[in-house]
Simulated scan of single mutants.
Amino acid sequence: MIRSAAVNQTDNMLTFDIEEWFHANYDHINPDDYRGKGSKFRAHMDALLQICSDTGSKATFFTLGCIGEDYPDVVKAIAREGHDVASHGYGHQLAYKQTYDEFKADVKKSVDILEDLTGSKVLGYRAPSWSIVESNLHYLQALVELGLKYDASIFPVKTFLYGIPTAPTEIHRPQVNGQELDLFEVPMSVMKLGGRNMGYSGGFYFRFFPTFFIKQAIRSANRQGRNTIVYLHPREIDAAEQKLSLPSKEHFIHYYNVSGTKKKLQHIMTSFEFTSVAEHLKSRFGLQV
């Protein structure tokens, strides 16, 4: 696959949340009920890695520790292709429903699994369902204590499930109790729409907005010297994957336009340069590993 000639040289960041189709944070869903009972996960991962290879893109794969246990070969393949393997926690528990000690132990468990598989230090973390919010922002201190270098858990919007609408929208060093942490915060990309922050380049937003709109938003951000972060889940590129039984609103958010997402992702990745979060932080902010 050849990237188009009109490439913007800004190094936007490509990220994937590596989990199974049943990893979702709804009260009636217990992932353990579905684990090991079949999915197209390996095919999805092969497709994502192939698209990255075809477009010369590097990405950060925020990977659950349980994925490392169930698919060690997949995690090794991600690392072998030169991508950034980061933590997504162990079993997709919401961070704000854990105590500080539970959260720290959960992240450590996942980091230990991933480092053992890749032989490389895990540098970053993204909370399941963006579950670092105002009430548990101090949990970021646990990441520092574990030796991680960046967090990508904060979405500067407000939804029924997540978000800190007043959070900085640029990469920064977060403050907890008035103290700046030795940690980079890499917030999810947003744009202003109707005076409010709105996502446009990941998950439901990526599936909802048309390709031309996303491209225009990325170009606008790049012209202003800002980098866009794209994020998706493996299940979002395959309409034939199994689906959870969800109420109509949640079903719409979870599954809208999954049939068109793979083609859209390929188009976006041929139109812009993408790198991993770790490589971006190294080149732009002097991240020391």
Rank of each mutant, 00 (worst) to 15 (best):
A5R: 08
Q9H: 07
T10N: 10
T15M: 01
T15S: 15
H23W: 10
H28R: 13
N30E: 12
D33P: 02
K37V: 05
K40R: 15
F41N: 00
R42Y: 00
D46K: 13
C52A: 14
K58Q: 00
A59Q: 00
T63D: 04
I67F: 01
I67W: 05
V74L: 12
I78R: 06
V85W: 10
K97V: 00
K97Q: 11
D101Y: 08
K109D: 03
D112A: 10
I113L: 08
L114W: 02
L114A: 12
D116K: 14
K121M: 01
L123D: 00
R126I: 07
E134Q: 08
N136M: 09
L137F: 11
Y139D: 06
L140P: 04
Q141M: 02
V144W: 10
G147V: 03
T159W: 10
L161N: 09
G163H: 03
T166E: 14
A167W: 13
P168E: 10
P168W: 05
E170L: 13
I171P: 14
P174G: 13
P174T: 14
D182G: 04
D182M: 02
M188V: 11
S189P: 00
K192T: 12
G194E: 00
G195F: 01
Y205P: 01
F206L: 15
K215D: 10
G225P: 14
R226T: 04
Y231T: 05
H233C: 12
E241P: 00
K243A: 11
L244I: 11
P247R: 11
K249G: 03
H254A: 14
N257M: 07
G260K: 08
T261H: 12
K262P: 02
F272M: 12
S276E: 09
V277N: 04
A278R: 14
A278L: 13
A278W: 03
L281Y: 03
L281N: 08
